[in-house]
Design a protein around this nucleic acid. Structure first.
Length: 271
DNA sequence: CAACGGACCTGCCTGC
DNA sequence: TGCAGGCAGGTCCGTT
């Protein structure tokens, strides 16, 4: 699933095609996603013009004059622009049929994604209200991570994956950023210096920016919004590379499960 | 409040 | 070949 680079790549991919377009109707084939798709979504959205496609954390925000559609791709979701008459597949759960014959189609085999509607400011929505800063914002800095980590005994990996601390760092890029920063993923978050958090913040920004630049990492079922496969994960330095030599020191890379998530690191480079 | 495990759901791969 | 079991990119929620 989409980590932040895939979500941002999707946003950039669909924005030129949907911005300024009117929604003809919404077709919901399977409302049972992470939360139920609102029953009255069609009534809310029909004839509304999509004024902007924005992103907050891994949520895509399709703004209209009347409200905002909030879309999360979960673990396995993808959004594609298709011909509205094209036969939907088994996991094509929601279509936004647009003026002009195209549809924005949500596919999500695992159904962990979400499609929600809010009339108010989306940043005040319960799911978005408590989110931490965007890592790619100019003012994101290690000083923030250092401040919020004081007194925390949980691992630094779980800290940077906690959306209240910083958003958009998923399981793949958490391992990648910690490798680049030379920080052991299991180290207690509260016992890392400001200088090392500054290095980590820069590593997070760099790894996310590079992945967006490359069009998003593809593992299993992600494909770009237009359907062609994305950039494959050859640029990943540790994720999925258990036992293979570290690109820096040749030491075999380790894998373990931390907080129920696979974690990869170099036992020699990361302290 | 912090930390952890469970939950949601399906597909794919491995090994017996 | 068939099937059970484990694994997968997220993140909210309830329990300690």
């Amino acid at each position: 699933m989409p980590e932040l680079p895939e979500v941002e790549t999707t946003r950039r991919g669909i924005a030129p095609y949907v911005t300024g377009k009117a929604v003809r109707r919404v077709v919901v084939r399977r409302p049972k996603l992470r939360w139920p798709v609102p029953a009255r979504l069609n009534a809310s959205l029909a004839s509304q013009v999509i004024e902007a496609v924005e992103r907050r954390a891994k949520y895509l925000l399709l703004r209209t004059a009347r409200g905002t559609l909030i879309v999360h791709l979960g673990m396995s979701g993808s959004l594609r622009l298709v011909d509205a008459r094209r036969q939907p597949g088994r996991h094509d759960h929601v279509d936004l049929v647009l003026a002009g014959g195209k549809a924005l189609r949500l596919r999500d085999p695992r159904c962990f994604g979400a499609v929600l509607w809010t009339r108010g400011a989306p940043e005040e929505h319960a799911l978005l209200r408590h989110l931490g800063p965007e890592p790619l914002a100019d003012d994101f800095a290690g000083d923030h991570l250092h401040a919020v980590s004081r007194g925390r005994r949980a691992s630094v990996k779980s800290l940077i994956m906690n959306g209240r601390m910083v958003v958009g760092v998923g399981n793949i890029y958490a391992s990648e950023a910690l490798f680049r920063a030379g920080i052991h993923p299991a180290r207690a978050a509260g016992r890392i210096s400001l200088a090392r958090y500054r290095t980590l913040a820069t590593a997070i920004q760099e790894v996310l920016a590079e992945a967006i630049e490359a069009g998003g990492t593809t593992l299993r079922d992600y494909a770009r919004e237009t359907g062609e496969p994305g950039w494959f994960s050859t640029a990943l330095r540790v994720y999925g590379r258990e036992g293979r030599p570290c690109v820096t020191c040749n030491h075999p890379l380790s894998r373990d499960v931390h907080a129920q998530r696979a974690t990869y690191w170099c036992g020699r480079c990361q302290r």
